[in-house]
Nucleic acid binder design. Structure first.
Lengths: 334, 334
DNA sequence: GACAGTATAGAAACCGGTTTCAAAAAATCA
DNA sequence: TGATTTTTTGAAACCGGTTTCTATACTGTC
């Protein structure tokens, strides 16, 4: 097995200089077609492949971007949200000829340490950070660094940070308004702690109540952690206060809530109406099917890649902030 | 913000040559303690960090390993198996000071193309391939390349390939024997198509039947794809043939099978006994709790990393093949 | 036909490390 | 004490590309 060919070998074989080979490789102008063809022929015949590391050292570009998910494996792998997100990001990365590397952390400390390595290694052209948390040390670390990055979800303070988010506030508002229009009055909510998206949805819900002069009842408000089980528990907390409808801030939790309602022989939507958020598989496996708010997760992911690509290509690029619309999907539960 | 420090800057600041700084950095012997201390002091004070790319170009070591999962996002994110596997690998990588990059593919073609890039990029010191499939183009591509790699699961032909697997054959045998010992006679099986692990479990089951002279009935054999739903469907296929026990080759499918049994008002284990495989969360959320076969997934992952580390450190290293034992966990369903 | 302007291509410098080589310094030995 | 070996160190080469600089060849213009 022959050793790896270098640009020098190609140059020698084609009877030109390294510089000319490089120019052909990078498609520069001012190369005589005859020479270009000759070099290209050698490249094709030998199957020469550029050494990316050497190229990176010279150009500072790797065409590799990273995706950071700090939520811990359990959360990631039990939540179809991430599957969809990663799929969207992965597809877009492919489209832009970027290689995607995923980094998953299991603890805050581990994450910070690894992030430090990732940043100083210099392999990555940029990062996408999927951070749900309101207060994220990773985010701060990243913001302080030189690394280009785009957030999935709104950053805690959004000045001068690129991000791609969906309109959670409006989604929450639409959800609550739908319930109000159906005539429900005691509308509860199951939200999630420490999560900015869930919080935005919550305030949308509050706004809707307000603008229809429906008083907010704290007893009709519970919080989970986006897991199915936490949805079931939260619903059990709400039940004694007799809501006639509940807006659950994720489909996953909504399917848990539904289980609780079934156990208590509460009919949905006749006794209690239920709304989810996400429009992901769990919503389609329940009985009755969940009425929910659709959020374009995959597009949010691909927009993030697009933004990152722009940041990489143009150092002067101002922060790019995207907020995608959410919309009502009426099925059976409300 | 000052520009990044290079080894040259450090050399100048410490009044020594680049070579000496490099020697200190790499902990070589033959460096006078006085000089070592002086250089170290400058490094500490300035917070100098080596440029990994330059180092990689010179040494051909990145300390980054990749994990390839070709199964497609949906499968990955709905199966707790992968969560556990990735966790094990991630922990071990950390332990060996390796950075882990995850690569997930959505189609065979995409995977092959990306793999080609990954291999020729030269960023990675090695790869871990989690391939369930019996016939995997990715595997062949990888085997043909120069890239060091370790498989999770037994490769199609295991000569001269490093892998880390669990003893699926024996696990299947133990499962069937447990059922036989409980006095069951019409023992069905739900296996999975195109999957080597499931196949090994199947042959273990066959062996157990054979050695107890229980005839194998093809009608009591169905196949799924490891998803919960496929387990439910497979069980529905089996039911008309009246098995008195069923060995399901994954907990996920077993929980689906359980749903079907419940729908048909079949009592478990009184009417039909049920066994799973994996000993993962699904087994603990069912009613009745699943009797199952435990496989040490996380350890299998960490062993793979350990093996890869050895392959990286020692070019002469012979293939390392690990097979970890599986064991019976008796709960309620059988 | 002289002159300016533009295309083309090679030589050499550079990216930031590691490693080889050779010289200088220190230690060991007779 | 002088010869010999071993440590210690810096200079220079190298990893495999890209890019700047410069020289030459080719255009077109008057």
């Amino acid at each position: 097995m022959a050793n790896k060919l270098t640009i020098k070998d190609i140059a020698k074989l084609a009877g030109v200089s390294k510089a000319s080979v490089s120019r052909v490789l990078n498609g520069y102008q001012h190369v005589r077609p005859e020479l270009r063809a000759r070099v290209q022929k050698v490249i094709d015949e030998t199957g020469y492949e550029r050494n990316t590391v050497a190229r990176l050292l010279a150009t500072d570009r790797s065409n590799v971007i990273g995706l950071l998910i700090p939520s811990g494996a359990t959360a990631i792998f039990s939540d179809p949200y991430f599957a969809r997100l990663i799929e969207g990001i992965s597809r877009a990365a492919n489209q832009y000829h970027l290689t995607l590397a995923l980094f998953i952390f299991y603890s805050q400390e581990e994450g910070i340490e690894s992030l430090q390595n990732i940043i100083s290694d210099g392999f990555l052209d940029g990062l996408i950070l999927s951070s749900d948390y309101k207060d994220d040390a990773l985010f701060n670390r990243l913001a302080d660094s030189q690394m280009r990055f785009v957030m999935i979800g709104r950053p805690p303070n959004n000045e001068h940070i690129s991000f791609s988010d969906v309109d959670n506030f409006n989604g929450g508002k639409i959800a609550a308004e739908h319930l109000i229009q159906q005539g429900y009055q005691r509308i509860g909510i199951i939200t999630a702690n420490h999560n900015l998206a869930a919080e935005d949805r919550y305030w949308g819900y509050r706004r809707a109540l307000d603008s229809h002069s429906i008083p907010f009842d704290e007893n009709l408000c519970a919080a989970g952690d986006f897991s199915q089980q936490s949805g079931a528990i939260a619903m059990a907390q709400l039940l004694p206060y007799r809501p006639d409808a509940v807006f659950v801030t994720s489909d996953m939790m909504a399917s848990g809530a539904l289980q609780t309602l079934k156990q208590h022989d509460v009919r949905v939507p006749d006794d209690v109406a239920l709304m989810g958020f996400d429009d992901l598989p769990p919503a389609l496996q329940t009985d009755p099917l969940l009425t929910t708010i659709h959020q374009p997760i995959d597009e949010s992911g691909s927009r993030a890649v697009k933004a990152l690509k722009q940041l990489i290509d143009n150092p002067q690029q101002e922060p790019i902030q995207t907020i995608l619309p959410t919309r009502l999907i009426v099925r059976e539960s409300a």
